[in-house]
Amino acid sequence: MKIAILGHGTVGSGVLKIIQDSALHPFEKDLSVKYVFVRPEKVDQNELFVDDYSTILNDEEVDVVVEVLGGLEPAKTMIIDALKHGKNVVTANKAVVARNLKEFDEIAEENGVKFYFESAVGGGIPWIINLERALRIDQIDSIHGILNGTSNYILDTMTKTGQSFDKVLKDAQDLGYAEADPSADIDGYDIENKLCISVDIAYNTFVKPGDHLLKFGIRNITDEDIKYFKKHNLIVKLLGRSFKKNNSFNFVVEPTLYTPGQIEAGIHDNYNFVGLRGTTIGKLTFNGQGAGEFPTAHALVQDILDLKANNVHLKRDFNEEFSLDNTTKKKNYVVRTSADLESKLPEYDIQKDGNYYHIAAIDTQKIHDVVNELSSDDKGIFFACISGGAYNPWIEK
């Protein structure tokens, strides 16, 4: 099986190393990389490197294109071109998959090829394949997870060390966990992409990222917030979750508080965690390395091996329609703000503790709307949901 890799960054180089070391891995012995697409200035660095994509598209020996360029373009166009030229495509690019999964899948089917994206959610965690396995038997009504290793590293390190957000973010950037522009990680966009893809498969629908989906990240968290939560025996994580009931579903990315002993509280460093709830399997969870050279490359090569073995993934047409409704779930929240929160929520039971407010039984849409409104007066506002099952110090005294 001949392979072309689009990109030679961290993940692309990892795929190349795994396949070239295939003597150590008997399942990969028939795999070989024929091309690596790179920028023109890098072409002379390796005999496999090319900068003319048509060379790859027009080579009938190329069976699989591995897209690891990242971003929306030219990745989208190059994926479509590969599929239309009869090439199977595997990708780790969650941003482009989240926005174009239905289109990619339809084009792949029209051209008799496959589009696989195991590594787009959870990196090295075998999440997509196990979600599909559960769906062969069960209806899935909820998904939740710590789906971004960078934000988890930041929160975990702040909790362990008491250091400031800015200091830990800089350390994450120095370690290569965070980009120079960390917005996707710390503002929840990366989790949004991954949750969209998971929801698409779980509910057989198509949900595109956008402002209509609730997101609140960790950009405003402080070391004082961490101390306050620890004082009340709570640990904060950045979580994505969705729940489906009848003809509607909710979707939210937000900081969430857990009690030590809950599984989510024990996800450390840059690890990911993701789980589902199915009709007969109940709760099923996975955790592991969510990013990096070899965990992500491992998942990409697993997709290639599935293609080689003709292992067919679960067929979804993404045509089910559900309404988005974030008002059905009532949860408890903690808000830290210097703005006048109480005047915005006169009908709610609110307890004040300095600049921290506990709000009982408020729906997710309402609290996000209020926080967004108050952010014009308090640009550093921060809030977190208290997870179900967590000890609530403001109620259980």
Results as ranks from 00 to 15, higher is better:
I5E: 04
H8L: 07
G12E: 00
G14H: 13
V15P: 08
I18L: 15
I18V: 05
I18D: 11
I19P: 13
S22I: 06
K29Q: 15
D30Y: 07
K42N: 15
Q45A: 05
E47L: 06
F49P: 04
F49W: 03
V50L: 06
Y53S: 04
T55R: 15
E60N: 15
E60M: 12
V68G: 00
I79L: 10
D81S: 10
D81N: 13
D81E: 13
L83Q: 14
G86D: 08
N93L: 01
K94W: 09
K102Q: 14
V113K: 07
I125S: 11
R133G: 09
H144N: 12
H144I: 01
N152G: 07
Y153R: 12
L155V: 05
D156T: 07
T157D: 13
T159D: 04
G162S: 08
Q163I: 01
D166H: 11
V168L: 04
V168T: 08
K170A: 15
D174A: 06
A178T: 05
E179Y: 12
P182M: 05
A184H: 11
I186Q: 13
D190P: 10
I191M: 05
E192N: 09
L195A: 05
I197W: 09
A202F: 11
V207Q: 07
F216S: 05
G217V: 03
I218K: 02
D223R: 07
I226R: 03
K237Y: 12
G240V: 06
S242R: 02
F243P: 02
F249N: 11
P255E: 00
G266V: 00
F273S: 09
G290A: 02
A291H: 15
F294A: 08
P295L: 04
I304T: 02
H313A: 09
F318P: 09
F322N: 04
N326A: 00
T328M: 14
T328G: 14
V335Y: 06
S338N: 14
L341Q: 07
P346H: 00
P346V: 01
Y357D: 10
A361H: 15
H368F: 03
V371L: 10
V371H: 10
E373G: 05
G380E: 15
N392D: 09
E396L: 03
